[in-house]
Design a protein around this nucleic acid. Structure first.
Lengths: 332, 332
DNA sequence: CTGAAAGCGCTTACAG
DNA sequence: CTGAAAGCGCTTACAG
């Protein structure tokens, strides 16, 4: 708030310590290389002036930013929150700062966020959505590492760390069949990935020789309230399903609440399976059977890729399958 | 990924368009000032070269960054998510980029995140927690605007946009008393703000001549699972409370789940009141009575403060009370 | 309307 | 171990 004259610069510190700016710079970036006594004087000068380095200038000079951009659709009730939280934590710990961008569900905003990130010369961009040709072009011309997470395309723009959504759908199908369920109702959100899982489920279900499931579509982002409409859908069906296959744990939770409010017992009268293994699913009554994506693992792989890139090392693999894991609990 | 020689610069574009770098810069920042035909040539050159301005250099030259730092304790199940989401949206729309920092519950990490933000010369820092003297010093020397949200200190470092937590606690107490409740059990998270609300509740409850409430403390961040322990606390009490006063809607939701699992009806056998009015609380069964904080309003005020600061205008008020609103629903 | 030039605050070979 | 100097890629008075 106070109307400052000017923030202290490297030169101010140098003058105060009776050395050149170069020496102060060395002391800051590589203390071992300056004489002990000189370092002491510089330290004192920094304290006295309250100097905070201007990263804008430093980044410009070195042509790197130690900034990473993370692009996600939204913050609330996102399947990615756990992963994001871990990524931001790891990045901060390793001295990177994180720029966050909310893309929404469309692709329009992604382009301008990617442009903004490139404009700030971020070292890496981490994105969860599908990418436009424009993004591919922009990123291709830059030296910024592009990391797609939760996605595993054949030929990634940069690096992809994800899992096979279709396989996850298939696994769910086999699991439910093995439990003796016969009439699943599948709820899918309007997103390519959710669609892949749904397709995997349907394909496997058919391959098992079982009869065509019923289904509902919900819009993005998924909200708790969607459960009401979906449950109404379910009640309207001629033959009641024996299990509801949900695209997220949040929705699964909502379905359980609705079912119980309607006097149904879960899983006795109706099974419910979620997706994402969020913090609530293990604590719900009943606990929710779901698919776990290892957010910590993905965060680590992302960090490893960024370090590798920042150090100029080569990539052995540009597609990392972090897998998934079905967790059987009480709701099915 | 492709090993580029060098990203195109302003000079490359200038050469391509047969003008000086200064003119390209003008075209980019103030198109009206260059001749139409010149502009056309520059546009073509930009497209051809795939030029993306280096914001690092631009920001250094102008000494401002159009970057804003947002510091929050965590991402998952945060009371702030709605507000953050709106703020990030508004900032991006107005051409600002957002740097995000996770402070955790302690104060140690906040200092280094503030330093990183100042180092990047962000235009503003938005923080939700309490601030150390060190932060006050650092910010005081800079020209960065410091905005505290959800907080309303007597003499803010920069600008504060929040509400009176103690009053919120008092309102809850009066509301519950008016509904005839007599034995509240108060659940408070380990945070100064939660503590203020709790103190307000207790003060008002006592002022109404009612008998001392029982209470539980939970650690931060609040998780759904806390509800199990709290509910166990409740069951262990000699006299069962008639209402549980929760520090967050998430916890309220958990208490409802636990209560129902134990065969209690909400609100008939046990009332539950939350805090924060998250998206779920209006869709739960029963819907959750809670206190709404207007995240959209706070986001707007934050944006207004930033614009004012970026335009160098003065502040009439440095403390903005965004208020709160008790929403009576079915859980009480 | 446009260009030449200085400057923003750093970093880093190059000498010494 | 340290300094002088050039350079990073922009912006912006100052002339014209």
């Amino acid at each position: 708030m106070s109307p400052m004259t000017r923030a202290p610069t490297l030169n101010d510190v140098a003058r105060e310590a009776n050395v050149s700016a170069a020496t102060v710079s060395r002391f800051l970036n590589n203390p071992g290389v300056v004489a002990g006594e000189t370092g002491t004087r510089i330290s004192a000068a920094i304290d006295k002036t309250g100097y905070i380095p201007n990263a804008l200038a430093g980044d410009l000079a070195t042509n790197k930013s130690r900034m990473v951009a993370v692009l996600i659709p939204c913050l609330e009730n996102s399947l990615f929150n756990d992963m994001i939280e871990r990524m931001v934590g790891e990045m901060t710990a390793s001295g990177n700062n994180v720029m966050i961008g909310l893309t929404g569900t469309g692709t329009e905003r992604t382009d301008s966020l990617v442009r903004a990130a490139l404009s700030r010369r971020v070292d890496a961009i981490i994105a969860t959505g599908t990418v436009s040709q424009n993004v591919i072009n922009m990123v291709g011309r830059s030296r910024t590492l592009f990391i797609q997470v939760w996605e595993l395309p054949e030929d990634p723009v940069g690096v992809a760390i994800g899992f096979r959504h279709e396989d996850a759908g298939r696994d769910i199908a086999r699991f439910l069949a093995s439990r003796g369920y016969l009439r699943p109702h599948v709820v899918t959100a309007e997103s390519p990935r959710a669609r892949s899982r749904r397709d995997g489920f349907f394909a496997e279900w058919e391959a098992l020789g079982l009869s065509l499931p019923t289904e509902s579509i919900t819009d993005m982002p998924t909200r708790f309230g969607h459960a009401r409409r979906v449950f109404a859908d379910v009640r309207r069906l001629a033959e009641r399903p024996d299990v509801v296959v949900c695209g997220s744990d949040l929705l699964a939770q909502g379905i359980i609440v609705e079912a119980q409010a309607a006097g149904l017992r879960v899983p006795d009268d109706l099974g419910v399976i979620g997706f994402g293994n969020n913090a609530i699913s293990g604590e719900m009554r009943p606990t929710i059977t779901t698919v776990d994506i290892d957010g910590a693992r993905i965060a680590r792989e992302v960090m490893a890729a960024i370090s590798r890139h920042q150090e100029g090392r080569e990539f052995t693999s540009r597609r990392i399958d972090a897998g998934f894991r079905l967790i059987a609990r009480d709701s099915v």
